[in-house]
Design a protein around this nucleic acid. Sequence first.
DNA 1: ATCGACAATATGTCACCTGG
DNA 2: CCAGGTGACATATTGTCGAT
Length: 538
Amino acid sequence: MVIEKIKKSIILELNKSLDDVIRSIFKEIKNKNYLTVEKKFIINEVYYKFIHKQYTEQYEPFYYLFWEKISEEEIEKRYKSALNTISNKPTLIKSKIENLINNKKSITNIKQYYIDKAILFNNYVKEQEKDKEHLQIINIKNDKIKSFGIDYYFNLINCLYDRLNNYCHLVIVFNEDYYINKWELISKISVFCENFKSEINFKPFIKIQEKLEQDLQENLKSNKYINFNKDLQNEILNFYSAISYGFYFKDLFISNDSKTNILVLQKIQYDESIVFCPNCFSDKVGGNSYTKLLQKSFECSNDNCIAKNRDLRGKRYTFLSAKIQNKKFDLKEKDYVPKEIYKSFRRDIFDKKVDILEHLIYLYTFTNENILLYDMDINIEKYNTLERNIYNYESYLYDDKNINSFFKLPIIRIMISVIKSIKESKEDYIVTDDILIKNANSTDFLYSLNKNQFNIAITSPPYYNARDYSKWENMILYFIDMVINAKYLYDKIEDNGYYVYNISDIVAMDNIYVKSKMCKKRQMLSSYSVVFFSLLGF
DNA sequence: ATCGACAATATGTCACCTGG
DNA sequence: CCAGGTGACATATTGTCGAT
């Protein structure tokens, strides 16, 4: 039954491309009024010939209408004649169409053709990825933070990065009572993961790099709460000298007893090396745009490849999409995610009783892939039935030369510099009433308020580009505004006062390094807010 | 069963660049 | 100089959920 379904979808797919080739001819001649009525009629006939061949049942009425009395030879002849009528179409396009048709004829077993190609591709992927890990899971231990500080984990993440296959996942588990604030720990680690590497060769960025620098300078110069200075200017240059990258934030799960948090990150590293076409396995491929920041996509330019769209552009894909699409021909029982696991991780909150490791393995790996566990207190034997190569590490050679690496991150450096440049506030507003309801710009108000007149502040701040009233050019400018506001609040609130700040992550374009859809992602507004506010003293 | 919301992915197309 | 290849970006389609 399943095989039949796959077969049907393959045949439909194959026919669609041929069908669409003919459609494209139609589109082409539609506006060419010089074609005679006869020539147009011939093209019509050719069109329905194709339709008839591929979709006998569906198009039967058309078949009888157009082809009842015409022989195969006649059809061939007219087809060639139709091709000739498209005299304005470049020869290249014609040959591409002919190639497609010849190729179609030579394939007798369509299903087998696809399976063969997919197996070739799957073996190629396996060969590429065999020496590295497909999933890394780090369990954050309180005793290690106590002995070495958070730097221990910054260092570890850095060391493990090169061993992880590109586009694969790093999962960080927090399930202890830490001696420092857990949310600050999660925030710092997630901010570090997004920014600890730097890339200078990304073309779309290089093109607008100077403009980005200037825009940020202009913006800060015109900000009435900032004293623009040389140091800030240098930090802007430093910030825009490269793209900060590392991992791509996917999600942060929390258990329903709020004891366990699971941070899921995906490695996306700039890699221009050629990926074979997942359809024809040709290495004759061109580039295409980027689907995500730093994630290259390709286009097959093999004339014989069947996967052409109606404008005869080739199959477009990334390493990851190609891997996933071909995997469907080579699935084992343990590659299927059990329904209950699939459901339980759809939401950000999961049941504390679930076997987290089993879930993660099913969700983020295929069979025979390599999984590195770090400090997971489990018995690996238990997971043998999942048919993955799992190994558990408990320690690595601690190398302290990267100490304080967090404060070397460009994003942290620039924010420290911004904080230093914020103007001193005034003290010329004393609240005399017990209750004051004030309608004002909160930054302006806090700027002129006298100190120590309140000890709690509660806000649901604007979320970056979530509403019409909360638009910023990019996320850096958003955080600068939020930090200025929080700085004045910090100055004015009583010592040991509380600031309640309601924030969460959001899907938006950060517009930091490029200004297009490729920077649309889940943005960690919460982690960045926590980290930046802690720089202020919170 | 159907629908709206939303995210992910596939496909369409503008316009720049390049090489003959 | 200009066709056409293709990088970048836009738009369409698909898939999934919960609500009804």
